[in-house]
Design a protein around this nucleic acid. Structure first.
Length: 916
RNA sequence: GGUCGCAUAGCUCAGCUGGUUAGAGCGCACGGUUCACAUCCGUGAGGUCGUAGGUUCAAAUCCUACUGCGACCACCA
């Protein structure tokens, strides 16, 4: 990286080679010995492992940029920084991808069989699985690739088994028949979290259920004389599995019916009417049909009452043989139509209402999930949740933004058992074996595959067919990736980790469970800080997604504008946990912030590199005697920037950190300091002044490049490594392993005050020139009155700059009396005025500019403004409440303000008079 | 139904512990071939800080209610 800088900023030309160099030099690698030997404190972030089949999207772009910002920043702060990468086998998701793939060959997974299918998935994963990790390199992530992990690799599988066995031995894993969420398309059970409710416009069907035999009076009757009860349901087809009708015991309307029988239509079964407090008398008719096999509440009810359970659904959600022949084999939705039609034909359909309700959908394939009774494995969560809850309540784990704490707590407080078995082929197979030897029904739960039955010694062992929920491996990620269950050096050095950065969508799926697992299996929280990012959305506020086609491909952005532009844009746009809005149809405007800033950094850097005379400069301390106002000012501002950026990074306010760095670079260094030192660097002249300027410029650039490095790693390194060296200091080979700058050493209030005055003066002259349409090249004379000490100081130091930057020919000084006594006319006629802070006044003779009428109008407006302001302040000061209670310095400030406004008003009105 | 969050310039958002004349980027208008940069420079227009109350000497900032939007949770069939 020592070729000359290209005049045009070309990110493509620097990024790839820099990344390769960082990686080849081992700078991403964290050395556990440095931690164990006490040389450095660790800083660890484990990546939220993307699905192994994933392709990088802007969500990753945002998350991983934040993770890398933190990693790089802490690395520069001297921590042994580990950013641990890896991927998740993503059970259902990956299996679905490969199933679709073989479907194009006209095959199903059953055609291949389990073994061949799993082989096929492995091939697929081996071929394409590292895509996303490659892509993370393109956005500059400084991951320790030597520690890359995969949730289904042997070491991590061992951790999974260890955990399964431990929990089983503790009685926290059990198998049982319960209602679970079943996806009829994926043909597997799902956890509660994997069934996503979606508001849907459905129907509420009111069905008439005739009573069997004699009926008490007071009930409505069918034309044939039978009495009936109305029940309401959103899923009428499930009536074929009804085994009771329930009413509230307090509900007088039904008191006489409790205990009687109903003849279930279509099925022609007799079912009882039972009483249960669960039933809400206010809803619908107050009577509920009970389908224990297909509704969790009904299932619970069946455990409280002696009623039957009829499972009417096959795994693919077609009706099975327990229903009348006419309905067998029908898809559930077909069956729904047919059942409703049958009720209508029989005069049993009371009414159908529109009904908006939440229907659960499979989080992977969006199919409507069916509650279904089946035998599954569960984790008993309560004992695990309690310590995790305590950790947040006691503040040992901190969420940012803080409001997520409540969401986390709420979930843990109402924790439900976790269904962990999946009827899939791709995943960790459940480490349970059943002895099939005649007369033996032993179940073996083991870390290692058993070869014979522990009870009968037989060898006819069959492993459980199911695999584990993919999150059952993810929840171990912070320690399984470090070698657990072995007590490895890595584990000792890098566990617990520090910061977890992820999307709030997986707070329950992943974050909460990791905390539980960390506490349970390591006795220690897996991390102390959780930063929940926002969501990347399009301009309509829709989440970016492949299916909507509103995504932005980060790699396209990298190609167009560079990784630094992408990273800066994303960071600057991401307020504390707020969503990031981007326009997928206008990448140019979306990423303009980052691209333009990167371009600015590049060019400012180039300017400095081209104009510093040698490749070594003196340390600032050595030239302190010749530092000029501008030098002291920019060093002071750099100091402030260091403080701000550091403070903001510490509180996860990345956008503010970016803004502080941006403001310093653009608003102070590029716009002002570079302009101020140009004469000293370009026009020759005083050698000491030049040396001071060079040292200062190098120091300022050095500092801001370091501050920007975590956010914009490439461009900062490309420039930084070419900066002139500071004599007597040894420079690191790359900014990424250089140290984070210290603040609190170069603040200079005097220089800041003087430069502020200077900048205001130049700004005012520019403003007036622009207002009066003075040709840009034309020098004009200005007159200053009431020049106070601070302004005097800045003029003495930088008069040359005023002339150059504001195109001023001569600067005339006047005493305060001049303008007031004789008016501007005395100074040569009408003119433009501006009152500067501190009371000094700027006057530009109108003759230098134009039009008296326009000027008069302008002055009148200004006068109105000042008078308004003065009224406000005077009002405040005449308020006894204020003068009586506000702190003295606040009142003093207000008084000062008032007197300034009065001065301004007097001057403005006298000038206005002089123009009349 | 419960809980939480948001509402500031045309757009996307800052504004951390109440206290100068509420800021940035994009967009817009005007003017610029100044030797780092037109991916640039200078200047400007544009805000009753959602509405109504309240607390306070002082509210974009704290409190209450309302309106609108959003998120999460929840077994009302």
């Amino acid at each position: 990286m020592t070729e000359p800088l290209s005049p045009q900023y070309d990110p493509g030309a620097i990024e790839t080679s820099l990344y390769r160099e960082w990686e080849e030099n081992g700078w991403f690698h964290a050395d556990e010995q440095n931690v164990l030997g006490g040389k450095r404190d660790p800083y660890v972030i484990v990546i939220p492992p993307p699905n192994v089949t994933a392709v990088l999207h802007m969500g990753h772009g945002l998350n991983n940029t934040i993770q890398d910002v933190l990693t790089r920043w802490q690395r520069m702060r001297g921590r042994e920084a580990l950013y641990l990468p890896g991927t998740d086998h993503a059970g259902i998701a990956t299996q679905n991808v490969v199933e679709r793939l073989i479907a194009t060959e006209g095959k199903t997974r059953d055609d291949l069989g389990r073994e061949k299918f799993v082989e096929r998935v492995w091939t697929f994963v081996d071929e394409t699985g590292s895509t996303i990790l490659q892509q993370l390199r393109a956005i500059g992530c400084s991951c320790d690739w030597s520690r890359t992990r995969f949730t289904l690799e042997p070491d991590l599988s061992r951790a999974v088994r260890e955990v399964f066995v431990r929990l089983y031995d503790k009685g926290l894993i059990y198998r049982g028949n319960y209602i679970i969420n079943w996806c009829p398309r994926c043909l597997t059970a799902l956890s509660d979290e994997e069934a996503e409710p979606e508001e849907t416009n459905g129907k509420l069907y009111h069905l008439r259920y005739p009573l069997a035999g004699d009926a008490p009076a007071g009930l409505p009757r069918l034309p044939d004389g039978r009495a009936y009860i109305v029940v309401a349901t959103t899923r009428p087809e499930t009536m074929l599995g009804d085994t009771a009708v329930a009413v509230n015991p307090e509900d007088g309307r039904y008191a006489s019916v409790i205990g009687r029988d109903i003849m279930l239509p279509l099925a022609e079964r007799v079912i009882p009417v039972i009483a249960d407090a669960y039933v809400d008398a206010e809803f619908g008719s107050g009577a509920v049909k009970i389908t224990p096999a297909h509704d969790p509440n009904d299932f619970d009810m069946a455990r409280r009452h002696p009623i039957a359970t009829v499972n009417i659904l096959n795994p693919d959600a077609t009706l099975n043989d327990s229903v009348p022949a006419a309905f067998r084999g029908l898809d559930r939705f077909e069956a729904r139509k047919k059942v409703v039609a049958a009720f209508e034909a029989a005069g049993l359909l009371e009414k159908v209402e529109d009904h908006r309700h939440a229907v659960p959908h499979c989080y992977r394939c969006d199919t409507v999930v069916e509650p279904r009774l089946s035998e599954q494995w569960f984790v008993k969560m309560k004992p695990l949740a309690e310590p995790a809850l305590a950790a947040s309540r006691e503040g040992r784990v901190k969420f940012t933004p803080e409001r997520w704490t409540k969401v986390y707590d709420g979930w843990l407080e109402n924790i439900r058992d976790w269904c962990i078995s999946r009827q899939l082929w791709w995943g960790h197979r459940i480490p349970v074996w059943y002895c099939r030897a005649p007369g033996c029904s032993e179940m073996i739960v083991a870390r290692e595959d058993p070869t014979s039955c522990t009870r009968c010694g037989g060898t006819q062992l069959e492993q459980d067919h199911d695999v584990l929920d993919t999150w059952f491996s993810s929840w171990l990620w912070p320690f399984s990736t470090l070698g657990w269950p072995d007590e490895t050096q890595d584990l000792k050095a890098f566990y617990p980790t520090n910061t977890l950065v992820t999307a709030p969508e997986i707070l329950f799926f992943w974050v909460a469970r990791m905390i539980m697992a960390g506490l349970e299996f390591r006795g220690e929280l897996p991390f102390t800080d959780v930063y929940l990012t926002g969501t990347v959305r399009d301009l309509q506020g829709r989440k970016m997604s492949k299916s909507l086609g509103n995504g932005i491909d980060p790699l396209e952005v990298v190609n167009l504008f560079g990784a630094d532009a992408l990273r800066y844009t994303v960071i600057a746009g991401a307020g504390l946990g707020t969503d990031v809005y981007m326009d997928p149809d206008n990448l140019e405007s979306t990423f303009a912030v980052g691209r333009n800033f990167a371009n600015k950094v590049w060019n400012a850097g180039r300017f400095a590199l081209m104009n510093v005379s040698s490749d070594t400069v003196a340390p600032v301390a050595d030239v302190s005697a010749s530092l000029e106002l501008a030098d002291r000012w920019i060093l002071s501002r750099l100091d402030a920037a260091i403080e701000d950026v550091t403070r903001h990074l510490e509180s996860f306010r990345f956008h503010e950190a970016a803004a502080s760095a941006y403001h310093f670079f653009r608003g102070e260094l590029a716009d002002w300091y570079l302009e101020l030192v140009k004469p000293r660097l370009l026009d020759g002249g005083d050698a000491a002044s030049r040396a001071a300027a060079e040292s200062t410029l190098v120091a300022a650039l050095d500092g801001i490049l370091r501050l920007l490095h975590p956010i914009m790693p490439f461009i900062t390194d490309a420039l930084w490594r070419r900066l002139p060296r500071v004599s007597g200091e040894t420079a690191a080979a790359s900014i990424m392993i250089a140290s984070w700058p210290q603040s609190g050493v170069r603040r200079d209030a005097d220089a800041e005050a003087a430069m502020t005055a200077l900048m205001e003066l130049i700004g005012e002259v520019r403003k007036l020139r622009s207002e009066y349409n003075v040709p840009p090249g034309k020098p004009i004379s200005i007159r200053l009155t009431d020049v106070h000490a601070v302004l005097e100081q800045c003029l003495a130091a930088e008069e040359r700059a005023v002339r150059r930057m504001a195109k001023v020919g001569s600067i005339e000084r006047g005493a305060s009396g001049d303008a007031d006594a004789a008016g501007p006319a005395a100074a040569g006629g009408a003119g433009a005025h501006a009152v500067l802070r501190g009371g000094a006044e700027l006057f530009i003779p109108l003759a230098e500019m134009v039009d008296v009428a326009v000027e008069r109008d302008r002055l009148q407006k200004e006068l109105d403004r000042v008078e308004g302001m003065l009224r406000g302040v005077e009002g405040k000061l005449s308020n006894e409440q204020f003068t009586g209670r506000a702190p003295a310095e606040v009142i003093e400030k207000e008084r000062e303000k008032a007197s300034n406004f009065r001065d301004q008003r007097d001057r403005l009105s006298s000038k206005l008079k002089s123009l009349a």
